[in-house]
Amino acid sequence: MATTAMPPAAPKKVNRVGLEPADYKGNRSTLCAGCGHNAISERIIEACYELGVEPYRVAKLSGIGCSSKSPAYFLRSSHGFNAVHGRMPSVATGTVLANRAIMALGVSGDGDSASIGIGQFVHLMRRNLPCVYIIEDNGCYGLTKGQFSATADLGSKLKTGVVNDLPPIDTCALAIQLGATYVARSFSGDKKQLLALLEGALVHRGTAMLDVISPCVTFNDHEGSTKSYSYVKDHDEPLSDVSFVPYFEDITVEYEPGTSTEIALPDGSRLVLKKLRTDYDPHSKVEALRLLTESHDKGEIVTGLFYIDTERPNFLDLLNVVDEPLATLPESRVRPPQSALNEVMDSLR
C-alpha cells in the first residue's frame, strides 16, 4: 500500500471551553441576503465564542418579527423560545427567575419593543433583570412589508413615498431613564464596535440593552430612509472607540492615558473606551440623556456605550432568591412538612 506523507492536521481552533466557532452557529438564515440582522447574528456567534460562553447556559428569547426569527440562526446548542409579539421581556423574566444560572439573550425588533411591547420593555429595564436585550432596529416592520415602526425618524420616507410625521422613541434614552445598567447603541455594519459592546453586555450582571441600527435592505434601504446603510454611515458618530478585555485574557490594550476610560466589570473583565469626545462620562444618566437629545436634534446617530452602572442591584438580588436554580430545587425544599400545614390550620381554628 502506497503511503502518502500527510501533513499533520492543523490543530483545530478552539476557545477556552474547548469549542470551535462552528459550535456557536445556528441554522441557515431565512432573512433577506444583506439584512443587518444577519451581521448581528454573526457578531453574537463571535462574542460567545471569544468569551467561551457555554451554549447550554444560554437561553435565546425573542418575540415576533424578522429580528425575532434570528435566534434560530445562532447558538444551535442553546434552548430558544420564540414567543408572542412584544412579549419577549416577560418570558425572559420568567426564565431568569426560574433558573438564575441561565444567561438570557433576548433579541427583539423596533416594532416588537417600541410599539406592541413597549409596556414590557420599560418594565424589564426598570427591574434591571440580568439579561442581554438586543433591539435589531430598522425603523420598519419588515415581515409585514415595510410599515413604519415607532423608532422611525421624523420625516423619513417609505418606499411608497409616505412620510413619517411622528417623532421616534429613543429606546436607549428610555432604558437609561428607567434603570437599565448597560445601555449602548451600535450599527450592524460596525463589526469591531458591536463585538466589543456585545462582549461587555454578556458579562454584565444587570440589564444590558443594545439598540443596533440594522438597515432593512428590502424595505428601508433607500434614499429618504434614515436607517439605510448609506444614511447611517454618513451620520454615525462613534462616541468612543470601545474595546473589551475578558477577565481571562491577559492583554493590555493600547490607550493613551487621559483619553481613555477603563470600566471594570464585576467578573474582572474590562471595557476600555477610547475617548473621541473627552467630556463624556458613561456613569452619568444626565450626561447620557443630554448627549442623546442633543445629537438627535443635530441629526446625528451617536453610537457607543452611553451608560453603565455596575453597582445597582439586579432583580434577582432584590428578590433574594436562593443561589441554586428554583426550577430544579428538590421536593424537600419546595414542599413544607406536614407540621407546617397543621400549624396553619390550627391558627384558623
Binding site: A59, L61, F81, A83, V84, R87, P89, S90, V91, A92, T93, G94, T95, V96, L97, A98, N99, I102, Q120, P325, L326, A327, T328, V334
Partner: peptide, 13 residues
C-alpha cells in the same frame, strides 16, 4: 408571560 417563561425553564409557575 413570566409564568410561561418560568414554566418553560422548569419552574412550577
Amino acid at each position: 408571560g413570566m409564568a410561561i417563561g418560568a414554566g418553560w425553564a422548569g419552574a412550577r409557575a
